[in-house]
């Protein structure tokens, strides 16, 4: 699995399974809905590296600093500490990458949306700001929409003009052989205060036509790899297909998105490779995990 982000073994607490974020075969007893928040602030440490002055999470948000210290980049891994989001949960994750800092965010396991006791919708809102000259790799494992779940997720990224972003988002509709729940997911990226990318995906019961030929065409995994980099203004990417159901598409700005639909999560990950995009092939862009011998790949299923 090329391109899989690999958290280091020593820093990762393997989450409790069963009711946790792995694709559990049966729904666990449903606890009451919860409201939980987490915050990450990454800032230059004054020695050419990145410090994490704020790394705070509660409930399902167990955040760990991972990776080698002393490098220019700080790595944070979200460890699945309990099953979430369940119906009715309200989760918020706030991230600030201060000017000149570099942050890499990963998760140890897929996020599994499960039904709650009341049938209420769960929400999961991520708010990210990336300052001047700062860099963010946002590479979580997929979001899986389990049958009967109802999740509305929003991700809003505000980039300074010289900020760089590599963001991967993957959604899997239903566990193996299962019909999906209701999933609505909006990703909004603004650069210098102007809209750059704004896409909402909506699937499952209550999303008319989601499985037809205009939206998914029977596929069960969908994702996008978005790269924003001022260097793309000088080295633009050409539009091109990446296999039969994926394409690399330059946006109206120094950004490019690789959008793909696939039969399953594994096929999707094979297509969403940062190496497809020139500026992320350049030195200093996708190094890290793959180059570091202490890292292992944690498979979620």
């Amino acid at each position: 699995m090329d391109g899989v982000t690999a958290p280091p073994r020593d820093a990762v607490t393997v989450p409790a399974r069963g009711a946790a974020t792995g694709p559990a075969p049966a729904s666990p007893p449903t606890p009451a809905a919860l409201t939980a928040a987490a915050r990450i602030v990454a800032a230059p440490d004054g020695r050419g590296g990145t410090a994490l002055p704020v790394l705070a999470g509660e409930g399902p948000f167990a955040l760990r600093r991972t990776g080698r210290r002393g490098g220019p980049e700080a790595s944070v891994t979200l460890v699945g500490a309990m099953s979430a989001p369940l119906g009715g949960d309200r989760l918020t994750l706030t991230v600030r990458v201060e000017p000149g800092a570099a942050l890499r965010f990963t998760t140890t396991a897929a996020t599994l949306a499960l039904p709650g006791r009341t049938g209420a919708r769960a929400t999961y809102d991520t708010r990210i700001t990336v300052g001047e000259g700062a860099r963010l790799h946002w590479l979580p494992e997929p979001l899986i929409s389990a049958h009967g779940s109802d999740l509305w997720t929003t991700t809003r990224v505000e980039l300074a003009p010289t900020a760089r972003l590599v963001l991967r988002e993957e959604q899997v509709l239903g566990r193996a052989g299962e019909r999906p729940g209701r999933l609505r997911s909006r990703l909004t990226v603004c650069r210098a205060g102007r809209p750059l990318y704004d896409q909402e995906l909506s699937y499952g019961p209550g999303a008319p036509g989601w499985d037809g030929g205009a939206v998914l065409g029977g596929h069960r995994a969908v994702g996008q790899l978005l790269v924003v980099d001022p260097r793309l203004a000088d080295e633009p990417e050409e539009s091109r297909p990446v296999g039969p159901t994926a394409a690399l598409m330059p946006l109206a700005g120094p950004a490019v998105v690789l959008t793909a639909v696939a039969p399953d999560a594994l096929e999707l990950r094979r297509v969403l490779r940062p190496e497809e995009i020139g500026v992320t092939r350049a030195k200093g862009a996708v190094e890290g995990a793959a180059a570091d011998a202490t890292h292992v790949v944690i498979l979620t299923d």
Binding site: E200, L216, P241, T259, V261
Partner: peptide, 22 residues
């Protein structure tokens, strides 16, 4: 503001449009 406007998208439509243009 304009963020209140819908942004609904069909990923397969976008992907296929790129191929079709070629």
């Amino acid at each position: 503001g304009v963020e209140a406007l819908p942004a609904a998208s069909g990923p397969l439509s976008d992907v296929m449009a790129e191929g079709h243009a070629g």
